[in-house]
Every structure is written in structure tokens, then in C-alpha cells.
Design a protein around this nucleic acid. Structure first.
Length: 350
DNA sequence: TATGATGATTTCCA
DNA sequence: TGGAAATCATCATA
């Protein structure tokens, strides 16, 4: 007697009719000779499954093989798959319906806005902000420097972008490889235990979620890197550069030549800003700083004041002999000459 | 590396 | 709202 026949005819007596876990269609049509035969088959299989762990390895392997070849096996597997889907999987399935993670959405949005993820758009909003900051600060000789810094920023952002995409690709590749591996494994196993396609799908989803959480960490660290880069390049104080010598001379010249009233009008500020290649705001800052520092320590600035007074006197003499005018920007309040190099404000500074 | 110089920012006031 | 004053942060130099 071959193994299958022996299996089919041994262990009789374990019926499936009325089995609580068995679907109705499997319980119907069990009457009659054919039905009795089926009942006995299923009983045999279940009995063998129950006792398979008590047997030796070789015997168990032989029985496993016999079970695999059993004509009722596909039907029984289908039933078991159905039961699994109706119980365990349906419960888990209900739990797995999760809304999109808001943190992940934030990270995705930020990476998109910064131009790290999505189509390359030349550095994103931060790059634009850096460019704007560069344009706003633009001192003498600083313009080129800002351009360099801007390109530095873009280069570093591109570097971050490349690292991000490389890592992302690696994760996706690993995820796909692992998913394929698990799917093959499950398909292989589905020959020896009931595994439904839904179960495989669920397993794939679990793997994808695990890899998504790793991806989220990658996104988080990328965002942090971008934020650090951004703060480094956007912090104006960090970017502070001294004005060049020529610009400082022009500003000092104006300051000491209008020492009695060192408050340039808007027009004068604009002119000075133009001459020094800095912004009007920077001119205002400079005069604000200069006034307060001069006032605090007139003695210290005495020498500087005398020097500028002498220099401008020479310029004025040259100008008058050539019939031209002094080149310092004029203001409605301009004294037009050099007051004594001490602070004689007729306005707000006392 | 300490220190002074200096450009920028913030807060308050008239 | 512009300016004074205080403060911060970085630069430059000894």
C-alpha cells in the first residue's frame, strides 16, 4: 500500500460535519457515499496534522509529503485561508487603517519646499532667501563674496540632496529585495501551510511600513541638516563683514564734515549708500553707531576727526582753486565746512 | 587666545 | 518713525 492510500484509509473516524470553523459549503453535501468518503479524507488529514509533531523527523517529512500530495489538500487549505481571513486578518486589517502621519507630511513638505525632494529647482526657498539676504547686505567687495557664499549654499544643498536620494534609493532597493524575498518565502511556505494572498499582501504592507519609518528618520536628519545649513547662511550677524576701507573713508568724511549735524538726509543716505555700495539701512546703522561711539569717547576720535578735517580742507582748497565743488554728498543741513573736531550737535545729541 | 573694533539688532523714547 | 542706547556676534589683530 502506498503512502497516500495508507493515509487515506487510516485514522478514520474524525468527521468534519458540524465543525464550527468550517464554512457551510464544506459541510454541505457530505451525505451519501461520496460525502462519507470526503468526510473521512478530511478527518484523516486533520488527524495526521495533529499527530505530526509526535513523530520522528523522517516520518514527519514523509507524512508532510503525503499531505502535500493529498487530493483534498487544496480544498482544505482554501478553507483554512478563508477562516484566517475572516478572523485574524479582518481584525488586524481594521487596525491597520491608519491616517497619513502628519509629521511625515510636514517633513515631506519641507523637503519639497527646500528643493531636496521633488524636481530640482535651484536650491529652494532657502536659496532664494540667501540670495535675497546677499542682495540686501551687499557691501563693497561683499557682492562677489555673497555670490560665492550663495553658490556655497547651493553646493552644500545639492550635496545634501544627493546624499538624501542615494540613501533613499538604497532603502527602496533594500525594501524591494526584502519584500521579494519574503514573498517568495511565503509562497514557498504556502505549499505546506495555508497562506492566503491577502496575508502575503498584509506582510508586504508591514515591511513597507517598517521601511517607511526608517525613511522618516532619513527625512528627519535631512531636514535637520538643511535647517543648520540655512541658519548658518541666513544669520546676518554670522555673515557680518567689515566695510572696505574706501567705504569707511567716505562715511567718515561725511561724518566729520557734518560734525555739527551728523544726520544725513534720506537723499544724502542714498547717495552715500550708492558711493559705498552698501544699503541705505547700512548707512543709517553706520551713522547711528558712529554718533553714539563718538559721543561716548570724543577723546579717542579726536585724532581721527583732525585727520579728516585736514584732508577735507586740502580737498576744499583744491576744489576752490579748480573751481569745482567738494565731492561729499550735500544735505540741507550740511554745514558746508568743518566744525571744530568736537561734538557740537545742534540737534538731538547733547 | 584675549581684546578691541565694528556691523547688526533690539528696545525704548520723543 | 527716526534716533539713542544697549547689546550681540563676528572680525581683525597683537
Amino acid at each position: 500500500m502506498d503512502e497516500q492510500t495508507r493515509l487515506m484509509h487510516s485514522h478514520s473516524g474524525v468527521g468534519m460535519a458540524g465543525h464550527p470553523g468550517l464554512p457551510q459549503h464544506m459541510q454541505e453535501g457530505t451525505g451519501g457515499t461520496d460525502g462519507d468518503g470526503r468526510k473521512q479524507d478530511i478527518g484523516d488529514i486533520l488527524q495526521q496534522i495533529m499527530t505530526i509533531t509526535d513523530q520522528s523527523l523522517d516520518e514527519a517529512q514523509a507524512r508532510k509529503h503525503a499531505l502535500n500530495c493529498h487530493r483534498m489538500k487544496p480544498a482544505l487549505f482554501n478553507v483554512l485561508c478563508e477562516i484566517k481571513e475572516k478572523t485574524v486578518l479582518s481584525i488586524r486589517g481594521a487596525q491597520e487603517e491608519e491616517p497619513p502621519d502628519p509629521q511625515l507630511m510636514r517633513l515631506d513638505n519641507m523637503l519639497l519646499a527646500e528643493g531636496v525632494s521633488g524636481p530640482e529647482k535651484g536650491g529652494g526657498s532657502a536659496a532664494a532667501a540667501v540670495a535675497a539676504a546677499a542682495a540686501a547686505s551687499g557691501g563693497v567687495g561683499v557682492g562677489a563674496e555673497n555670490t560665492t557664499e550663495h553658490s556655497d549654499y547651493r553646493a552644500k544643498l545639492t550635496q545634501i540632496r544627493q546624499i538624501y536620494h542615494t540613501e533613499l534609493e538604497k532603502y527602496e532597493q533594500a525594501c524591494n529585495e526584502f519584500t521579494t524575498h519574503v514573498m517568495n518565502l511565503l509562497r514557498e511556505q504556502s505549499r505546506t501551510r495555508p497562506i492566503s494572498p491577502k496575508e502575503i499582501e498584509r506582510m508586504v504592507n508591514i515591511i513597507h511600513r517598517k521601511f517607511s519609518s526608517i525613511q522618516m528618520q532619513l527625512k528627519q536628519s535631512t531636514c535637520e541638516a538643511v535647517m543648520i545649513l540655512r541658519s548658518r547662511f541666513l544669520d546676518a550677524r554670522r555673515k557680518r563683514r567689515n566695510f572696505n576701507k574706501q567705504a569707511t573713508e567716505i562715511l567718515n568724511e561725511y561724518f566729520y564734515s557734518h560734525l555739527s549735524n551728523p544726520y544725513p538726509s534720506e537723499e544724502a543716505k542714498e547717495e552715500l549708500a550708492k558711493k559705498c555700495a552698501i544699503t541705505v539701512a547700512q548707512v543709517s546703522n553706520w551713522f547711528g553707531n558712529k554718533r553714539i561711539r563718538y559721543k561716548k569717547n570724543i577723546g579717542k576720535f579726536q585724532e581721527e576727526a583732525n585727520m579728516y578735517a585736514a584732508r577735507t580742507a586740502v580737498n576744499a582748497a583744491n576744489a576752490s582753486s579748480h573751481g569745482s565743488q567738494a565731492n561729499s554728498p550735500s544735505t540741507p543741513n550740511s554745514a558746508g565746512g568743518y566744525p571744530s573736531p568736537c561734538y557740537q550737535s545742534d540737534r538731538r545729541i547733547q
